[in-house]
Design a protein around this nucleic acid. Sequence first.
DNA 1: CGATAATTTGATCAATATCAAATATCGTGG
DNA 2: CCACGATATTTGATATTGATCAAATTATCG
Lengths: 208, 208
Amino acid sequence: MTHPFQELIDHLPANARSELSLAKGEFLFRQQQPAAAIFAIISGRIRLFRDLPDGSSVTLHVARSGETFAEAALFAENYHCHAQAELETKVMRLNSRPLLEAIALHKDLGLHLSQILAAQVRDMRAMLCLRDIRSADERLLAWLRMKARGEQMNVAIDRPWAGISEELGLTKEAVYRSLTRLQREGLIERADRQGRERSEVIRLMRRP
Amino acid sequence: MTHPFQELIDHLPANARSELSLAKGEFLFRQQQPAAAIFAIISGRIRLFRDLPDGSSVTLHVARSGETFAEAALFAENYHCHAQAELETKVMRLNSRPLLEAIALHKDLGLHLSQILAAQVRDMRAMLCLRDIRSADERLLAWLRMKARGEQMNVAIDRPWAGISEELGLTKEAVYRSLTRLQREGLIERADRQGRERSEVIRLMRRP
DNA sequence: CGATAATTTGATCAATATCAAATATCGTGG
DNA sequence: CCACGATATTTGATATTGATCAAATTATCG
């Protein structure tokens, strides 16, 4: 798995990064603790949440395999939330200090970091936009359109629909049913279903 | 209105920025057109959407007053979507060239840009997280908790609930009803309702 | 004071969540 | 290669909730 940060990582001294393993329930860092690194998930899942003065807490993010998190910690004195492993989890740790030094030295890196973050902003805005679509069919269709590549408007589905459903903010049942409806209405075609590559391709049909 | 980009803007030569007025329906830029600037909305609303090979289109974002957009255009050859004013709209335009030059010169600016973007990423992740909460009451409560400041857990509401409802992905009716339910259950208190400052304060009650 | 926008309450409906269960597929070890 | 368990996909029945449409009330601003 190659992270968006890969190029940054490659320009860092070896001692700037390390790999950590966390048991389920273990904390990667705690709210208030001095911020010293940002992270990328290799495998597993980390929940970020904040304790509030009234004793309650709010979840701010659940980071999954391949994702980075705590980027804002680069610019903060302390972490503003807890990071707890929800599963046995492996993360890559990038120390702020050498990262900032590398950026100061090599100004392309700073821009590159901005580029990575700008892409994330763009993608997340699109996901938020999707969430504004109330109808399951329309939301799924919009998601497929965003993912579609090429003149053919094909979308390769490379992971279980259950995960995609979560991303869409729908239950898996709702998504499966939408898929059948969209297919029945001729808006999509499903192919390669049986392939041993455990992958499926959705083709969007020309029909604005 | 002070943008997050303000500090960046202050470090730019005057000719790097300009203010544009768009009529309702007018395009700020078009998909495929060479990318030459990023923008911040002064007033009005801009919809970003992409045309797809099959003739359909998807909305990627609706940027509102105070927001910036097209940041990724800094790093792209061409715009990857259209930007169209949904209302009469004023935007601040920041030309990519001088912006990139200023960053190359003054490396703090690059970091500062990263910082702005990292904050946006953090905030948007939190908003996405909110959307995963299905119950209107819970979602609103979580939003209030995120916004709450200080030991007192007060939230200043400085704009109509209709706008907040949209941000939450709920209708205004749903939000008003949630507010009364939460109040009835003693989870929140509403104060300063009548104030001529047209603002209201929600106080979260200690009750984890 | 009148006009406009914001807040509130009500009734109804449609859609998705939920719970349950059947079928299909995949991966693995024998 | 096959059997078996785990995971993924699919379909069904039902309930809940928020969307929608409507309308009343209240606040805000000239």
